[in-house]
Amino acid sequence: MMLQLTRLRVEQLRRFRQPFELAGLTPGLNILAGPNEAGKSTLVRAIRAAFFERHRSNAAEHLRPHGDSAAAPTIELDFLLDGQAGQLRKTFLARKRCELQWAGQRHEGAEAEDWLAQRFGFSYALKGESKPQNWGIPGLLWVEQGEGQRLDVDPARDYLHDALAGQAGQGGTAGSALAASGGDELLERLRALRQLLLTPKGGAPTGELAQLIKQGEALAAERETLDRQIQAYRQQVDELAALRQQHAADEAARPWETLQAQLDAARARQTELQAQQAQLATDLARQAQLAQTRELLLAQLAQGTQLQAALAQRQQALDEATRQETAAQAAARAAQAPWQAAQAASAAAREAL
């Protein structure tokens, strides 16, 4: 039996609220690379949930996006099984559903899940979330970042042992030969190969695997640096594109012409205000001069009033003197008549002598 995943699509699953598709998976080893918190482990967990979790299980709560109580985490897997195309689609929580299509067959619900478990050799947890002991050999196929050195091969070994024993019980010649020792020879070979990559105690990476991990960490650090540089470059490109777009919009709208017209009008208004300000200064100077002239005229008017009063007094004195002169003249005339009579009498007396 040969299984190859060709496409993975998730939606409303943890950080992937919007649909996300991972296509173009190839035969052999597929490695998901990306920065921290990009969702690599989430995609691996999605594959595990599609196979190892019942669609009606309440243990799928960890697939829900944070704070979205109405979410329906959906996983869709395209695969090739023994060269024939198939598709598995599971929806958890809000709209629980399981659909399986392969080689013209169609299964739904628990029937589809039981068909997968029997076909691939794993089991479902009787309660709660599935655990590594339920995963069988498929549990070794999808490994999260940092978990490779801690793989537990015992569940896969037990399943292989039981499968080989089952073949022996059915009379299979090759199965009987291998299962006679419970598959110990094959398992010893597997352990020997494992010891080339992991230490016997603790399962720490060693040998070529340790070197590859170091190289992978160095490459991951280099990639993160490149990703940051690329992100900065993309941001600069986006900013340049925005500036070019704004420049094109400005070229089309030519807002500076309006601004230039406004500037010219403002300058003309400024010139007008400056002229008005100069005129105002002239007017204020003229007003100050007029005020000074007014004060001078008022002083002269007051002096004229005083002169008029003095003139009136003098006129009154003149009138009084004229009156007295007239009276004196009348008195003189009155006094002159007797004098003239006396003169005439004197003259007549002289002639009579």
Rank of each mutant, 00 (worst) to 15 (best):
M1T: 13
M1G: 14
M1H: 13
M2I: 11
M2P: 03
L3P: 04
Q4V: 10
Q4F: 03
Q4T: 13
L5F: 11
L5P: 00
T6D: 04
R7G: 04
R7T: 11
R9K: 15
V10T: 09
V10G: 11
E11L: 08
E11S: 13
L13Y: 09
R14F: 04
R15E: 10
P19W: 01
F20H: 14
E21G: 06
E21F: 05
L22W: 01
L22Y: 02
A23P: 06
A23K: 09
A23D: 15
G24M: 01
G24P: 04
G24S: 05
L25I: 06
L25P: 11
L25S: 06
T26R: 15
T26S: 13
G28K: 03
G28R: 05
L29Q: 07
L29T: 10
N30Y: 08
N30H: 07
N30G: 09
N30W: 07
I31R: 11
I31W: 10
I31Y: 07
I31C: 12
L32M: 04
G34S: 05
P35F: 02
N36W: 03
N36I: 03
E37F: 11
E37W: 05
E37C: 09
G39V: 01
K40N: 09
K40E: 06
S41D: 00
T42W: 02
T42H: 00
T42M: 00
L43Q: 00
L43C: 01
V44M: 10
V44Q: 01
R45K: 13
R45P: 00
A46L: 01
A46W: 03
A46H: 01
I47E: 05
I47R: 07
R48W: 15
R48V: 06
A49Q: 02
F51K: 01
F51A: 00
F52N: 04
F52C: 08
F52S: 02
E53N: 00
E53S: 08
E53F: 10
E53T: 05
R54T: 04
R54E: 09
H55Y: 14
R56D: 15
S57F: 10
S57G: 14
N58D: 15
A59K: 03
A59Y: 03
A60Y: 05
A60E: 04
E61P: 00
E61G: 14
E61I: 11
H62L: 06
H62W: 11
R64P: 11
R64V: 13
R64L: 15
P65A: 06
H66N: 14
G67V: 08
G67N: 06
D68G: 03
D68M: 12
D68V: 15
S69I: 11
S69E: 15
A70Y: 11
A71Q: 05
P73D: 06
P73M: 04
P73H: 10
T74A: 12
T74D: 09
T74N: 10
I75G: 04
E76F: 03
E76W: 08
L77Y: 03
L77Q: 13
D78S: 13
F79Y: 10
F79H: 09
